[in-house]
Design a protein around this nucleic acid. Structure first.
Length: 425
RNA sequence: GGAGAGGUGGCAGAGUGGUCGAAUGCGCUCGACUUGAAAUCGAGUGUACGCAAGUACCGAGGGUUCGAAUCCCUCCCUCUCCGCCA
């Protein structure tokens, strides 16, 4: 959620930064107007209520002093009724305006960080690092789905029978590899200080709204029609709501969590893209990292989050690069995002395998997660960060392609061998 | 799914129409006493908006009333028992 006070106090500066994402002038103008109306009505309403409270007290006193039938009592009652009538008009107005304001404000994305490069589309994302050139395979071979199907460890056709396209069934060593990767990543991230969470895989509307998936991106999630429940699109949603409506002690920060969950996405509007393989599925596994931090520390916390994600790729000896998303490609809730892209030999390019975002206080406003500093009065919104550590399906795809041998076999990265008790798939 | 009970401040728990943001206890903070601690005593201790006065919040929403934590309606959630079930 945007900070209405910040907008109100400095609308031009606010809009200038927001418009680095696209043109939000119209809704912002509307929000400012609604905000002003709302505040005006609120002043009027609370004055009437003060008067009404006073009348209520007076009536109570008169009645107590046995003057039940005092004509003054009737006069006060009449006044009370008058005020009630006025409030009866103001209150619905104020409520309607508040609801409108809230609904509109929830559709405004976060302001980009000054460090986020300005750009219109993913073309203008900035590469900041490459790692692992020495591990690039000598020549491009088969795409991972062919490798996997030859080995008999992935099956897409049968998944259509079971479900639909964009699902996979893992068999034998494939299933074991997935399990090993999950275990490996969780081992690494818990060793890095993240507390492991296993959250519900169904989440309610409030949780999706808090993290920013709703109201704007309802099309992207699967909904259970009969209940107020949706299939989890990412563990970020669940962990972000772990402390929803709480006031934490400053000393308890930072909180570092990680979680393995499946993720469910409708992938609406991506019909032609990545139709084969493990890259874009309706269901995939991910180990997610999530941090609740003091606002002063979110910058460094973001850097270390990135390092924790990179560490997995380095341990697996998978070549990758790091890019900073530009303002035009930045996700809805983020102020700054690093994407990790792993080398996919069959495609001859780097593909996203992790996204590490600093969301500032955007999600904590939406989820009302605050902290209190000893000695300071009032509360503050904390900062949240999230990052994949990593997407399991894409990691598996990258391993199959980067570790394929001339004979069609696939070697296992050294770090994984103990988990599977074997060297080759 | 059937039957019942209930949702009040960090926790426990009073309050069933009037000055109740809410008794009391516990917890917590500060102070006194003490060599130190415990015990004891004293003061304080929710959130949001507002410069303030003040307003709002006792699961959520609506209603009755001059006035609602308290009465009525709807919804949500939790707990107990039974049934079913991993």
């Amino acid at each position: 959620m945007i900070d209405l006070r910040q907008l109100r106090e400095n609308p031009d500066q606010f809009l200038a930064r927001l418009n680095l994402r696209g043109d939000y002038s119209a809704p912002i103008r509307e929000i400012l107007a609604l905000d002003q109306q709302q505040r005006q009505i609120e002043v009027e309403r609370s004055q009437l209520q003060a008067r009404s409270n006073e009348i209520g007290k007076q009536v109570g006193q008169k009645i107590k002093s046995a003057a039940k039938d005092d004509p003054e009592v009737q006069a006060l009652r009449d006044q009370g009724n008058q005020i009630k009538a006025q409030l009866g008009e103001l209150e619905p107005q104020e409520k309607a305006i508040k609801a409108q304001l809230e609904a509109l404000a929830l559709t405004i994305p976060n302001l980009p960080d000054p460090a986020t490069p300005v750009g219109k589309s993913e073309e203008e994302n900035v590469e900041i690092k490459r790692w692992g050139d020495e591990y690039l395979p000598a020549q491009a071979e088969l795409p991972h789905w062919e490798i996997g199907e030859r080995l008999g460890i992935l099956n897409f056709e049968r998944s259509v029978k079971i479900a639909q396209s964009r699902f996979v069934t893992l068999i034998g060593a494939g299933a074991a590899l997935e399990r090993a990767l999950i275990q490996f990543m969780l081992d690494r991230q818990t060793a890095a200080g993240y507390t492991e969470i296993s959250p519900p895989f169904l989440v309610n509307t409030a949780s999706l709204t808090a993290s920013g998936q709703l109201p704007k991106f309802a099309e992207e999630s699967f909904k259970c029609d009969k209940d107020d429940l949706w299939l989890l699109p990412t563990a970020e949603v669940a962990i972000n709501s772990l402390h929803r409506d709480e006031i934490l002690e400053a000393e308890s920060l930072p909180l570092h969590y990680c979680a393995y969950t499946p993720c469910f996405r409708r992938e609406a509007g991506s019909y032609g893209r990545d139709t084969r393989g493990l890259i874009r599925l309706h269901q995939f596994d991910k180990v997610e990292m999530f941090k609740f931090v003091h606002p002063d520390t979110s910058g460094p916390e973001h850097e270390s989050l990135l390092q924790n994600a990179e560490a997995i790729l380095q341990a697996l000896r998978l070549p990758y690069r790091v890019i900073t998303l530009c303002t035009g490609d930045l996700g809805f809730s983020a102020v700054k995002t690093y994407d990790l892209e792993v080398w996919m030999p069959s495609q001859g390019k780097y593909r996203e395998i992790s996204s590490c975002s600093n969301c500032g206080d955007f999600q904590s406003r939406r989820g009302n997660v605050r902290f209190k500093e000893a000695g300071k009065k009032g509360t503050q919104f904390l900062h949240t960060l999230n990052g994949s550590g990593l997407a399991v399906g894409r990691t598996m795809a990258a391993i199959l392609e980067n570790y394929q041998q001339p004979d069609g076999m696939v070697k296992l990265p050294k770090a994984l061998q103990p988990y599977l008790n074997r060297e080759m798939l």
